[in-house]
Design a protein around this nucleic acid. Sequence first.
DNA 1: GCATGTGAATAGATTCACAGCG
DNA 2: CGCTGTGAATCTATTCACATGC
Lengths: 219, 219
Amino acid sequence: MVAESDPPTRRIPEATVARLPLYHRVLVDLAARGDTTISSDQLAIGSGVNAAKVRKDLSYLGTYGTRGVGYSADALIHEIGRELGLTQEWPVLVVGAGNLGQALVGYRGFGARGYEIVAIVDSDPAKRGLEVGGLVIEAVDEVERIVADRRIAIGVIATPADVAQEVADRLVSAGVGAILNFAPVVVSVPPTVSLRKVDLATELQILSFHQIHKHGTPA
Amino acid sequence: MVAESDPPTRRIPEATVARLPLYHRVLVDLAARGDTTISSDQLAIGSGVNAAKVRKDLSYLGTYGTRGVGYSADALIHEIGRELGLTQEWPVLVVGAGNLGQALVGYRGFGARGYEIVAIVDSDPAKRGLEVGGLVIEAVDEVERIVADRRIAIGVIATPADVAQEVADRLVSAGVGAILNFAPVVVSVPPTVSLRKVDLATELQILSFHQIHKHGTPA
DNA sequence: GCATGTGAATAGATTCACAGCG
DNA sequence: CGCTGTGAATCTATTCACATGC
């Protein structure tokens, strides 16, 4: 006989990964209201996705539900949190202390615990030494030191587009393993580095596309 | 014989729509450098996607390329711009004048022309009348008037999560047809309204997921 | 009985590979 | 000959529908 020891941890599809943070948030909310058991239907309603999808997504994590009953809120919160890395601290470095960079620093909590911005740098010498949201703006030259000293794994690019690639290169060679890019330009990084993009202009353009193409084509 | 009049405008897949802004930006950049003809390979390199995908995407718009040559930069820029609605003005209303709302207003140009923030409102009476980025913060009660007077089609939610749904409802009933939601919560809107979400915490969590699951599972 | 968990079916997106045409 | 445009193949994601087990 073949012993089936630990749950073989199936590979989690990317689309599922993108929904886990959502589920986590909804679960925390429901648990805060006192719900201790949560059905896929409740989770589906709270997160705006189909219940079958919820179940399929959660099945990739293992078997945390009870048939006829639902999922244990605590167990699921714990498990999703573990997968997402919410059990550890993720100090974040922001590059670029313009409008956006400063807002990010001011955005205390960042909507989620564990992701604290611990440093912000800018290439403009005039900005150096200024305080923003409790942090002192440092020089870009300090990136390597900051990443090493503070064990930074995630860098945020909040610079103008034209320097974004060079900033990305610098973050990567300083040892950052993940980058969140707000600059409206495609940056490339080695395959070992994770990269995500947040692009306001793109979002607005997608919205106006849909406005224009509302079912009966308007004027 | 059957006359085939205008290009039957195939339905553009959502994944393609999301890439059109990217192509547009790359094309504008290349055209600014003097390139008048652009191949799918060049576009692919500039936008970081596969060349076959570029061609397939562009084929949904119609036939704008010349075999053996490439695409006319001007023609493509014009056509993509038309699809995305870049030929018209899209006045934007921001709800919430906290850190993020103020940064958005200050983010002049918004990375793209045509999407100008023309008003910002906040529920806090103490903020009313303050100027931010050339705009005076108005009361939330003014939303209906502002949307009607300024012909606002796109609303941006930059409030805390707990009021996001009520803000969304208000924007919808005021007549806004598209919403960009920055609050870390799922809001629902009628199917006639387009909705997109930008969620910093989610992005960071996806990044840390990938950090943790870097091929050889680390400690 | 009831809600999970999951194979099977379907839909959607990406990639391949090459015919078609300037 | 080179690059577009596109059917066909593949891969990924979603949805269905029901067997499974508390």
